[in-house]
Design a protein around this nucleic acid. Structure first.
Length: 960
RNA sequence: GCUCAGAUGGUGGAACUGGUAGACACGCAGGACUUAAAAUCCUGUUCCCGUUAAAGGAGUGCGGGUUCGAUUCCCGCUCUGAGUACCA
């Protein structure tokens, strides 16, 4: 039989499913290997050819490792809480769980037909109660922990309380809110329960705090910084504004330094690490206190100084004014009566500016003088205090010392408002712009005059510390992560409120189920959708989704919780999208455990992810939060490894490749029904129209299909070139409206899954972004047919010989063994596809039909094209289902050694000739034989070369 | 603006630590088989000059450098893509 991919693929997919062929064991003597994909959000659109790219790569690697004798964990699941299902629910009333189930079914069908070796028995879905039970449980652990800076790790709040009871707040060095109280043990014990809880909340790793959030009115929720792009929501592109709200936050900043340091120990792409480093944004500098000038001031001030953060403490003598953010807490107190009108007007003007305006408008200088002064802490100079919106309230202390000679923004501000510009370096050129140089010696700088940058910085910081007016300080750009969303379709926060303070529900009551509600919209009073819930309940039986829950199961219902305003009520916001994905790789280790998130034994065996493949778009979201939760879980002894993902590969984005037809425009400017081939459009007035890539092959339009593409094209005319209509091409995002979505189902229907898998790899380097182009897929399909043919005779009978392989056949085999091993280990899958083609071409030329060669070929090819290989494996007489655990053939270099070798000979680096010699020669003999050769003599033309260079015993260069 | 990645035939791409640039595939051209088409197979295919064949020259975005030898290393520039943005 010819290669019948449809029958073969269906048969083996069924076999793998029926026999749990890829089920991973938690107890074996084999070494473990954990290959993880970023699990998908099951969207309604299903998979396009870009989605499986990373999954195919990881599947090849997982299958390869299995053949190499590893116990491989290669699971898949769904990140199934998310906005689109909820948006759909608002529009249609369809419960999000129903939409989600349907989408998952589509995803599963599409994934199955590509032939992945996933262990589906470990599937997870973040929206199921038996999963989010543990997401809630981890939230509770975070709530019950604080960060001890002295131990540099998270510790339990119980320990903190014990310390308070014995020693008061003294001796605690914590990452916490700024306005903590200081108290003795006796004072602590004298506090009432409510005050104690309020104080503890300032230490907890997940805590409630009023903060400025990114509010998206259209989505009715807050968004994390990484969910906002250019002032618009990443999902949906709605405007986002700043708003003060009381929100759950995660104290990720406690881990800033460890998140930064950990990057040096993991094998991730450098650009991705760089993105995380920038996001964490460590800057080393000093905080400096500028004492307020009491002669100008103003009784309501509660502080004696303004604190700034600077990375250039050495420039302090160049400070000619101070700028604080318009939102700074001291603004009102600092404003003198004469300046009040100016300041108020400026604040109103700033508030009106949207985030977008502020960004578009970075060149305009604006600000206002408060009327107050501070003094320079080192020389007592009187310095005016201004407000301006180029200073951000959220970074550092929200105040800067302005050094116009060294900072361009300060320079422009000083020029605009006629403030002094003080030169501080002898070689500084400040005629037209600021010069931030660190070269040269200081001038106009008191006791650091004449020093260099290095000496000066240390001297200034030392003097500030001596005076108690400053100290060296490290600042991070990263903010604590907002952890609440005003949405329905997410994990309920396992918290209720009493007296306005949050308390955890009891662990034994987990999970707190997502209640049913009548409408998926905020309440009339503006509460999140969960404000509508009247039937909160605990403890669903495993596997049930909210929709499937029966009334008996819900009989532990509690009927309070109308809203946060009640004396005793549930939290109404839900967790953000990243909650469920921040620990899911541990659940795969022990997916059905209902006692723990994963058993200790499972965690000790699997430990961490050896290889993680996914897109770089998660660099500052999922990948950062996961590292954060992992470090926390390690601190409290839940897991073993400091970093969760040892090696990470980013697969590139697959872009769309759009095709265009060109409609002729008539003299009146109207579109006609005549279409011009792409090569001829310069001669006509045309307009480009997207055309479905499905009716175009190799950029040639199928005219008949085009006529049925849309009714108005039914009687289209064409102006052709060489009898063909050639379409235009452009690379764009893959999207339905551009008619450039290529569906894997169609390709599998036409060429089969093995061809699709190999073609996706053949397309180019895994990590590189590239447009999808189906044009070359035939080549891979032909290759698989040739491979099939190697095992069959002219009448399609399976026909192999047991004869001894020839030397040439063994050479072909061992070349490919070595090549594929090298390629897979360095994730260069595209080049190994080419090497397979070369090997099969060679074996075809040799008319090879030797069992000893071809059985090994089947094993090597299995990771790439598993279906055809399974089929051939059984035809070879092996038991079905044993291929995945066959022994990978061992490379033997002896087969590649040749008797004679053709030495390329170059003259002054330019290739001129080849000389065939016996391989047994040593370097000296090669030199002599080369020089004696007639062709070489001809090129030398009587001259003697100055030098003869033999490289790696293979290449010869003569220097004349 | 800053940071990072990249630029190789008509196209996707290969060349691993500096050592025969263009593997492999698509496309294209020609041929075989066929009544014909499809399928399959064979040959050619970087550019220029030339041709019966040969021989020669140029060539990895641009300009320099190091080296016997550079797609690869160094310096400067152009362009493209990604991330980030008043971060003090």
């Amino acid at each position: 039989m010819d290669y019948q991919f449809k029958d073969i693929e269906k048969k083996w997919q069924q076999f793998w499913a029926d026999n749990n062929t890829f089920k991973a064991e938690n107890n074996t003597n084999k070494p473990k290997y954990y290959v993880l994909d970023m699990f998908p959000y099951p969207s309604g659109a299903g998979l396009h050819v870009g989605h499986p790219l990373g999954y195919i790569a990881s599947d090849i690697f997982a299958r390869y490792k299995r053949l190499k004798g590893f116990n491989v964990l290669h699971p898949m699941g769904y990140d199934s809480f998310g906005l689109p299902a909820e948006q759909y629910a608002i529009q249609t009333g369809q419960h999000p769980s129903v939409t989600t189930e349907a989408n998952i079914a589509t995803y599963r069908r599409q994934l199955d037909q590509i032939g992945f070796s996933f262990d589906w028995s470990r599937e997870v879905r973040t929206s199921l109660p038996d999963y989010y039970k543990w997401t809630q449980w981890i939230f509770m652990q975070l709530f019950n922990s604080w960060y001890n800076k002295d131990a540099d790790k998270a510790e339990s709040v119980a320990k903190l309380v014990a310390h308070f009871e014995n020693n008061g707040s003294a001796g605690i060095n914590a990452v916490c809110d700024e306005e903590i109280l200081s108290f003795t043990a006796a004072e602590w014990k004298a506090m009432n329960e409510q005050d104690q809880q309020a104080e503890l909340l300032k230490y907890r790793l997940t805590y409630l705090r009023e903060s400025t959030v990114n509010w998206c009115a259209a989505l009715g929720t807050v968004l994390a910084n990484d969910e906002v792009k250019d002032g618009f929501s990443e999902r949906g592109g709605y405007p986002v504004e700043q708003k003060k709200m009381t929100q759950w936050s995660m104290r990720i900043t406690a881990y800033a330094q460890r998140l930064l340091e950990g990057l040096d120990k993991i094998d991730w792409p450098e650009p991705l690490k760089e993105m995380q480093r920038n996001w964490i944004g460590k800057s080393v500098g000093a905080s400096v206190r500028f004492p307020l000038d009491k002669t100008t001031h103003l009784s309501q001030l509660t502080t004696d100084y303004i604190e700034v953060f600077t990375t250039r403490a050495d420039t302090i003598f160049g400070t000619s004014f101070l700028v604080i953010a318009p939102e700074h807490e001291l603004v009102t107190a600092l404003t003198t009566p004469e300046q009040k009108a100016d300041i108020d007007a400026y604040i109103i003007q700033t508030k009106k500016k949207s985030e977008l305006d502020r960004m578009a408008d970075t060149k305009t200088v604006s600000g206002a003088f408060t009327g107050s002064y501070v003094t320079n802490p080192l020389n007592g100079d009187k310095i005016p205090v201004w407000i301006a919106d180029y200073v951000l309230a959220g970074y550092g202390t929200g105040a800067v010392m302005a050094v116009p000679s060294g900072d361009q923004r300060d320079y422009l501000f000083a020029k605009h408002y006629n403030l002094p510009v003080i030169q501080i370096m002898d070689i500084q050129n400040i005629e037209t712009e600021a010069d931030p140089t660190k070269e040269g010696k200081y001038v106009n700088s008191d006791f650091i005059n004449g020093l260099t940058y290095k000496e000066a910085t240390a001297a200034v910081v030392a003097r500030l510390e001596e005076k108690g007016l400053g100290k060296a300080k490290v600042n991070f750009r990263m903010r604590d992560a907002i952890f609440g969303r005003q949405r329905y379709w997410g994990e309920p926060v396992p918290v209720y409120f009493k007296g306005g303070l949050p308390y955890l529900i009891e662990e034994k009551d987990l999970p707190l189920l997502l209640p049913e509600i009548d409408k998926y919209l905020p309440t009339e009073s503006g509460e999140p959708p969960l404000g509508r819930a009247t039937n909160w309940s605990y403890n669903a039986s495993p596997k049930s989704s909210p929709k499937e829950r029966t009334s008996e199961e819900a009989d532990s219902s509690l009927s309070f919780g109308e809203g946060r305003g009640e004396a005793y009520a549930y939290e109404l916001s839900t967790m953000p999208g990243w909650a469920g994905s921040s620990w899911y790789w541990y659940r795969y280790m022990d997916a059905h455990n209902d006692k723990e998130f994963a058993s200790r034994e499972a965690i000790e065996y699997w430990r961490d992810v050896d290889l993680y493949i996914g897109g770089s778009e998660h660099a500052t979201g999922h990948l950062l939060y996961s590292r954060f939760w992992n470090k926390f879980m390690k601190d409290i002894g839940l897991v073993i490894e400091e970093e969760p993902f040892k090696k990470l590969i980013n697969q590139g984005m697959i872009q769309g490749r759009s095709n265009f037809v060109y409609r002729l425009i008539d003299d009146a400017g109207r579109g006609t029904n005549t279409f011009i081939s792409h090569g001829l459009i310069k001669q006509f007035n045309t307009s480009a129209i997207h055309v479905d890539v499905g009716i175009v092959e190799n950029d040639v339009l199928n005219l008949n299909k085009f006529k049925t593409f849309r009714p108005e094209f039914a009687d289209a005319d064409f102006i052709l070139e060489n009898g063909k209509y050639i379409c235009g091409v452009e690379v764009e995002k893959m999207s339905k409206s551009k008619f450039n979505v290529v569906n894997p189902d169609d390709l599998i229907e036409r060429y089969g899954a093995d061809t699709l898998r190999m073609y996706e790899m053949f397309l180019g380097p895994l990590e590189q972004s590239k447009p999808w182009n189906t044009n070359g897929i035939e080549g891979v399909f032909k290759f698989l047919r040739k491979f099939w043919r190697l095992f069959h005779d002219a009448d399609w009978n399976f026909n192999l010989s047991n004869a001894e392989p020839t030397k040439a056949e063994l050479k072909s085999l061992h070349k490919i063994i070595r090549k594929v091993e090298e390629d897979v280990e360095r994730f260069s899958f595209n080049t190994s596809v080419s090497s397979f083609m070369i090997a099969v071409n060679e074996l075809t030329d040799l008319k090879c039909n030797k069992r000893a060669i071809l059985q090994n070929m089947v094993i090597i090819l299995e990771p790439y094209a598993p279906h055809i290989c399974e089929e051939l494996w059984v035809l070879l007489g092996n038991e079905a289902g044993t291929l995945s655990y066959a022994t990978y053939p061992k490379f033997n270099p002896a087969y590649l050694v040749e008797d004679e070798f053709s030495y390329p000979v170059s003259f002054n680096g330019k290739m001129k000739t080849n000389v065939s010699l016996s391989l047994s020669l040593d370097v000296k003999e090669i030199e002599e034989a080369i020089l004696a050769h007639a062709d070489v003599q001809k090129y030398l033309d009587g001259k003697t070369p100055k030098k003869v260079i033999v490289v790696k015993g293979r290449i010869v260069n003569l220097v004349i």
